[in-house]
Amino acid sequence: MDFDHETMLELSKVWGLLYLILFSVGVVVYTFWPSNRARFDRAQTEIFDKDDTPWR
């Protein structure tokens, strides 16, 4: 098969679309995965920790 403009067209219109849709599904799943809740909640408030020294 020649690698020409049509190939690029198919690559972006079919596979590019699929890859982006699958990726967004993955992101949504990660964001709302129940066991991730605890670490997100921690991250949200942890930056207010007053201790101004590095742990290492």
């Binding site: 992101v27 949504v28 990660y30 964001t31 709302f32 997100f40 991250a43 949200q44 408030t45 207010f48």
Partner: peptide, 12 residues
């Protein structure tokens, strides 16, 4: 002095 409104929204 307030945590971000929605951490999940920031990830999305």
């Amino acid at each position: 002095q307030r945590p971000i409104f929605s951490y999940r929204l920031s990830i999305l």
